[in-house]
Structures are given as structure tokens and as C-alpha cells.
Design a protein around this nucleic acid. Sequence first.
DNA 1: AGGGGTTAGTTCGTGCCACGAATTTCCCAT
DNA 2: ATGGGAAATTCGTGGCACGAACTAACCCCT
Lengths: 150, 150
Amino acid sequence: MVAALVRGAFLVNAVYAESAREFGITAQQGQLLCVLMPGPYGMGELGTTLGLAKSSLTGLVDRTERNGLVRRGPDPRDSRAVRIALTRKGAALAERFYAETCRRVERLTAELTDADRDTLAALLGSVVTANKVPVVFHEPDPGIEVRATN
Amino acid sequence: MVAALVRGAFLVNAVYAESAREFGITAQQGQLLCVLMPGPYGMGELGTTLGLAKSSLTGLVDRTERNGLVRRGPDPRDSRAVRIALTRKGAALAERFYAETCRRVERLTAELTDADRDTLAALLGSVVTANKVPVVFHEPDPGIEVRATN
DNA sequence: AGGGGTTAGTTCGTGCCACGAATTTCCCAT
DNA sequence: ATGGGAAATTCGTGGCACGAACTAACCCCT
């Protein structure tokens, strides 16, 4: 059990990192983009979501901003706070990176039957929610298009 | 499915890293110790097992050696090669770190029934083996003691 | 008003991690 | 013996993560 979880995590990480690399970003920057896909976040929220210290986040956002993928904007409610949002370029890259990463991770379960895949998803899903894992990767869009985004 | 895998990996990683931190090592050094638990490895093997470039490994082994957890020994077969082995201190720490990490990862599945846990282990296990994930974390010792190690 | 405590982010210094390119040493097959 | 390839290390670069110290703004309370 434990070994399966740890090695599974290792595998997913490797795939994630390699996917990121091919898009010219690091895994951490990719994660940041994915978190921001639904909408802007403040630094504080990002810190708790990604499990990073404030000071770690400043640097990550700096580097990602320098790459033109993300933008710091003012928070109308609070002038010390800051809203991090995807730039147009960042949103486009996030979309592509997200899709490609989904494809690759999905392919890891290629040899499972559909039923097994569903079971695995359900079990892992319950572990994830029971442990209150932040949404560092949102559910893919199911078939029907009902986008309100943008 | 994908989201469950990615978030699960995120969760396991966080637990792993926190466990390592409490033993005064980094996640990478902890992983190195775990890989070395069954016996010594050469740099090359370590590289493929951990998925790291040779040059990355030199540094990791340097730092871990500096901490007194690991030792470079000569390879009798090949004088350029090197065998990395746990020191006595490293073996002791590895044992404790491994056990504690197992406890913590296991606790993540606390709310599953035994049957569900078995199912999850089996499914994840088949994904892991189908994708030829190296043994970066070996199976815990089942009850009966049949050690040949050391 | 106007402080005192709190919160949001940044800065700074440190150490770790990962990589590629270049290098050295050695093995081995021809 | 020699030339190709494998095993490691070195070097330089850049990203990542942290804690401690700091600044600016908010909030509340009197």
C-alpha cells in the first residue's frame, strides 16, 4: 500500500515535470498556472494552496512574471494585497500545458479496464478529499461545453 | 481520474517531505537513503533509479555524505566506478525515517475500509509496475522476519 | 483622532537541487 | 597500442524553499 502510493507519486511527478519541461517551464511554475486557471488569487491564498511559505512564493511569482505568464494586479479591497492573474500568454500556455499533462497522466492508466479506472479514481478521490488536499489541479472539463470562463 | 492522481501525488509528496524534514534531511536525501536500504548502488544505477542526471547525483551524494549518512566506496570490479553505501548512522536513520514515513502515508488512507485499501493498493500497484517505476521505496517488511540483509 | 496589534507582501541571506557541457580516468575490443 | 565509450567529477547557471527582519496598510478600540 505505502510503497504503491509513494511510487505512484514518484511516477506522476516525473510525468508532470517532464511535461512542464517541454513547455519551457518548471513543474512549480506549471502548478502555479494550473492553480490560477479558474481565476486570480492573492499571495496568501496561493501560499496555503501550494503549501509554500510567503517568501518562497514571492520568488516563484517573480520568476513566472518575468516569463510573462502571470501578472500582479492591485486588490481593490486592500491596497497592501495583490492579485495574481494569468496574462493572456499565461492563460494560453496553461491551457495547453494542462491538456497535455492530462493526456500523459491519463496514459499512465492505459492498461486498466474502464471499471478499474473508475474504481481507482473514486478511491484516490476519497483519500484526497478526506485529507483536504487543495485543488492544485482541477477536474478536467467533461464533454459538454458549458464554459463561463473568460 | 487525472486530478485524483495529481492531487494524490501532491499529498504524498507533502507528507514525505515533512517526514524528512523532521529527521533533519531533505526529501531527496531521504529518497536516497530508502533506495540504498537493500544494499549499495553505483552512481549510474542510482541515476536511472532516481531519474537524475549524473551531475545532479554527485551533488546529492556529496551533501548526504557530508551529513555522514552515506559513504563512497571503491568498486572492486571497476576502478573508475564507485559504490554508494549507507553508513551505520545512515542505516539507522533510514530505518527510522522509512518506518515513520510508512506510518504517515498509511494514515492517509485511514478512512478507507480494509477492502478498499487492498483494492487501491492493487490498482496503484499495477499502474506502478505497468509503467516500470523504479523501486524508490520498497515494500514494508511483512510480519515474519526472514532478513538476509547485512 | 490616533495608537497598538494584526495582516499582506517583499527583501535578504543561506543552502539545496537539477541540469548541461567539459574533463579525467579507466575499461575494453580491435 | 590505441581509439571509442563508460563512470564520475567539476564548473557555472538558474530555480526552489525557507526563516528572520522589514514595510505598508488595515482594523479596531478607546
